[in-house]
Design a protein around this nucleic acid. Structure first.
Lengths: 335, 335
DNA sequence: CTGAAAGCGCTTACAG
DNA sequence: CTGAAAGCGCTTACAG
C-alpha cells in the first residue's frame, strides 16, 4: 500500500536531512540549486504530498476560512448566498485557502451558539454571510479572530462589512424611472426586515426627495414579516405608475399579482427589481433591475479576510461594491 | 490578549498533568468523576477551545471531506449541485466532519489536474459531484483515499456511486402519461451527454416497450452538445402528444419554444420534466416532474463516506435513491 | 486513578 | 551549503 510519504522518507532516500528536503521543496535558501532539483524530482517520483495538517500545526494557521450562512437564507428558492459562497470558495482557492461552510441552524441562531468550527479552532477567520440578530452579532463580536460581515452590516458594530451599494443602486434605478416620466412610484419591501431592504428604500427615497416628489405612506408595500417570511402583497389604491421592488423575487411575485388582477406590465404599470437573479429573466416581461456583482463581492471579501489573517489589526470598515443597472422590458416610458 | 488556552494551561492551573486533562475533556476512563467535572468547569471558565489541528495531526485524520464540483455545472442557472452541496455540508456537520468545496476549473479538468486538497492532504475522502470525463475518472481512481461519485456513475469504474433512481423515475413518469392515454411520446435529451440523461431515456424506453409502443427516432430530441451546452430545440414533425424531458430546465425551455410556436400546454401538448427544481414551478403551467430527493442523497453520501473513512475496505457499489413523482398541471389526460 | 514519555510531520532558529 | 534540535498541542500506550 502507498503508505504516506513524508519528507523524512525523501531525506532517507537522498541521504540528506529532512530540513534540507523542507528547504528544497519550499524553495528556501540554503540548498544548492542542483540538490534542490534532485530533491524535487525524487519527491515527485515518490508521489510525495505535503501533510498540510503538520504544516498548519507548526505555523498555527489552518488555512481555512469559515463561512456562516443562517439556515433561514438557504431555502430552495434562495440561491443568492450559495452562489456567493461558490465564488468565495473559488477566490479562496486562488489564495491557497479553503472555505468551510457552516449552515447556522435556526436553533443555534436563537440560542446564540457559535458554530463548532469556532469551538474546534478549525478556521483562521469568519465570514458571516447574511444578516443575523443583534444578539447574535454581539456573540460574533466576542470572537477574537478575524471576522467580517458579508452582504449586511450593523450600525452599532464596527466589524468590517462588505456590502453591495444598495443605496446608490436603488437611487439610480428610481432616477431612471423618473427620467422616463414616472411620478407615482411605490416601494415594495419591509423596511424593518434587513439593512439592505432599508438602504434600498432610502436610495429610492433620496431620488424622490431630489425630484421633489412626495413619499405617500400607502406607497410603501410590505412584502415579508420581520422573520423574512413572505406575505401576501397588498396593492395600493390608487395605483402608482411604477413599483420599485427590493428584490427580483418579490418583483416576480408582484408581477404575478398584478397580472392576476388584470394589469398588464409594463403597459399599465412598470416594475423594477434588484439583484438580477434568476427571477429577473424568468419573469415575463424580463425585469429591469440592478445586478449585484457577486464575483466582485466574493473577491473583495476574500482579499480583505486574508489581509486580516496576515495582519489582524487591519480594518476596512464598510466596503461598498458597486452594482449595475440592467435595462430590460418591465418599464414603460411615460414620455 | 486571549492567548490560546491549551490543555497544558488547564493542567498547570489544576495541578494535574495534561494527560489527565485530555482524558477528562474526552470523557475517557482513568479520571475520577469528581476531578473530571472540576477540569471541565475550569476549561469552560478559561474559554478553552480544542485545537483540532493538533488532534488531527495526532490521529492522522483531517475530519474534512472534499467535494469536487466541475465548474461546468455551476453557472448561474444551475443550482442543483450547490443545493446538494449545502445538504452535504449540513450532513457532515452532524457527524463532526466538515466539507471543503473545490470547484474544478475547466482547465484543471482538461489537463487532468487533481485539486490541491488532494496534493496537500487536506481531506480524508472525496465526493465527486457531477460527471467528469473518462480520463478524469481514471485520475480519480488513482487516489488511494476513500472516494465516491455523487449523482453519476461510470460503468467501467467500480468506484461507489450514489445516484438518483433515474431509470425508474422516468419509467414511472412515462407510465403515467400512457395511463392518461398518450401514445406518441417524445424524449428530450442528448443520450450521449451524461449517464443520468441516458438512464432516464432508458426508463422512458422501457415504459414504451412494456406498452408495445414504437420508439420513433425523430422523437428523440437533442437538447445539448456533449459538453453540456444547450442547443436550440428542434420540434419533431409530426408532433407527439407528450414530451418527456430529461430535466426541468429543458422542459422550461421546451415550454417557451412550444408557446412561441403557438402550442398551448397542456391542451395541445403535454410536457413532463425531472428534478423538481426551481424551473418546475416557474414554468407556466407548473411541471409534472420527478423530485430528486436531494436531502436523502446528501445524507446517504455522507454516511457512506464516513463509513469508508473509518473502514477503507467498505464497498457500497451503486446506491439508488428513490425519487417521487410530483403531479402538476403540464399534462392533459386524453381519455 | 494519575502521569511521564513518545510521536504525529512539519519548519524555524541556530550551529557548524 | 547542510543538519541537529526544538516545538506546535494533542492522544495513546504503558508504567506506577
Amino acid at each position: 500500500m502507498n503508505k504516506n510519504i513524508t519528507m523524512r522518507d525523501i531525506a532517507l532516500k537522498m541521504g540528506v536531512s529532512s530540513v534540507t528536503v523542507s528547504k528544497a521543496l519550499n524553495d528556501k535558501d540554503g540548498v544548492s540549486d542542483e540538490l534542490k532539483e534532485k530533491i524535487k524530482l525524487a519527491a515527485w517520483e515518490m508521489g510525495y504530498r505535503i501533510n498540510s495538517v503538520a504544516k498548519s500545526m507548526r505555523e498555527g494557521l489552518t488555512y481555512n476560512v469559515g463561512v456562516i450562512i443562517p439556515e433561514r437564507f438557504t431555502d430552495t428558492t434562495q440561491t443568492f448566498y450559495l452562489r456567493l459562497y461558490q465564488e468565495i470558495a473559488v477566490a479562496l482557492q486562488q489564495h491557497n485557502y479553503y472555505g468551510i461552510l457552516h449552515i447556522l441552524s435556526r436553533q443555534d441562531e436563537a440560542q446564540l451558539n457559535l458554530p463548532r468550527i469556532y469551538h474546534e479552532q478549525k478556521v483562521d477567520g469568519f465570514i458571516m454571510l447574511g444578516q443575523v440578530s443583534k444578539e447574535y452579532i454581539e456573540i460574533i463580536e466576542q470572537i477574537e479572530q478575524p471576522k467580517m460581515f458579508l452582504d449586511f452590516y450593523d450600525e452599532h458594530s464596527d466589524i468590517d462589512a462588505i456590502i453591495t451599494d444598495n443605496f446608490y443602486g436603488a437611487y439610480e434605478l428610481t432616477n431612471s424611472l423618473i427620467r422616463q416620466g414616472h411620478r407615482d412610484i411605490a416601494y415594495v419591501g419591509n423596511l424593518y426586515s434587513t439593512s439592505s431592504i432599508q438602504d434600498r428604500f432610502l436610495g429610492y427615497y433620496k431620488s424622490l426627495l431630489e425630484h421633489r416628489l412626495e413619499l405617500k405612506p400607502q406607497w410603501i408595500v410590505s412584502d415579508r414579516d420581520e422573520q423574512g417570511t413572505f406575505l401576501e402583497l397588498e396593492l395600493p389604491d390608487p395605483m402608482p405608475s411604477a413599483f420599485v421592488c427590493n428584490c427580483d423575487q418579490v418583483a416576480h411575485l408582484l408581477l404575478q399579482k398584478l397580472q392576476a388582477k388584470g394589469y398588464s406590465v409594463p403597459a399599465d404599470c412598470s416594475v423594477v427589481g434588484f439583484d438580477n437573479d434568476i427571477y429577473a429573466t424568468l419573469s415575463e416581461p424580463h425585469l429591469t433591475t440592478v445586478e449585484v456583482d457577486i464575483h466582485q463581492m466574493a473577491f473583495t471579501a476574500v482579499q480583505s479576510m486574508i489581509k486580516k489573517i496576515r495582519s489582524p489589526e487591519t480594518r476596512f470598515g464598510r466596503v461598498l461594491v458597486q452594482g449595475k443597472i440592467i435595462y430590460r422590458n418591465s418599464v414603460q416610458s411615460l414620455l
